[in-house]
Design a binder for these strands. Structure first.
Lengths: 144, 144
DNA sequence: CGCAATTTGATTGTGCGCAATTAAATTATA
DNA sequence: TATAATTTAATTGCGCACAATCAAATTGCG
């Protein structure tokens, strides 16, 4: 039997998994300065663009389900960054709204992409290629 | 202030994070057939290449620390796939060895890369480019 | 030798991440 | 209009993932 494919170095999944963790680790010290985890950060990024928004739509943007989002949103709520409320119209849905404190945080968060840029040791071209390949992988995996 | 960079679509970290999760999700049904999680799978891959091995060296291959590996290895041990033992020479170290059952599992695991290949909607060239860029990102982030 | 620094794995605590289940409400259908 | 199917969050349980701390053993240095 051919065991070559079983070597870590011959797998595409492993560098993907390791690079993702490494990038999150690079963000972490900057994010902890503003009191967010990485997942909370990307959640706030969606919320800054789309507020108010339902939990389901939020999860679609982030590829996260309610099992992850419900406790995460409660933590953001306890920090005063968002509000969770059920509208009278449909008691099943929860609408998440960014508070004033959440909006104020956006100014600090906006500095993070700039701080991260020098940590990304890829040229503009390389980053563009990587970005396109990752989205191609993502989009086509969704459809299968 | 420029908030363009704060949009999810303008960040490289997010497709990396989402693609990594999506690929792990693709592996999961195949892996559950042989009773492994994704992290257990890549751990066994390292062990099949390097047995016996200390926990520290194992963690270096996987970019995982003992807080993750210790309970994970205990679960692999409880499944009978590995043995954990302290050699008399240095009581601090733990040596992990693949058992016969662990070796037998390799035959089943070897089928998984083949099952996954059609799920990866990238040409050989694209996969090669992605692989190279991810390792470049990984290697250079390690050195900074 | 004697003591400090280092190495190594284990432990604890917090926070994802997801599958499976549940419960409540709405919508579709006979 | 009943009632079945669907939609939507929440809950539960398990397994990572990592920071911080601890304890034990080894190594290095004066």
């Amino acid at each position: 039997m051919n065991y070559e494919q079983l070597k870590l170095a011959n797998q595409l999944c492993f560098p993907l998994y390791a690079a993702s963790k490494a990038v999150v680790a690079k963000y972490t010290p900057h994010l902890s300065e503003i009191g967010l985890t990485y997942t909370q950060y990307i959640t706030m990024m969606v919320l800054w663009e789309h507020t108010p928004v339902g939990v389901k739509e939020l999860g679609e943007h982030l590829s996260l389900d309610s099992g992850t989002l419900t406790p995460l949103l409660k933590r953001l709520e306890s920090k005063g960054l968002v509000r969770r409320e059920r509208p009278g119209s449909d008691e099943r849905t929860v609408i998440v709204t960014v508070t004033e404190a959440g909006t104020a945080l956006k100014r600090h968060a906006a500095l993070i992409p700039q701080k991260m840029a020098p940590c990304m040791p890829l040229s503009k071209d390389e980053a563009g290629t990587l970005y396109a390949l990752l989205y191609k992988l993502l989009d086509e995996m969704r459809n299968t």
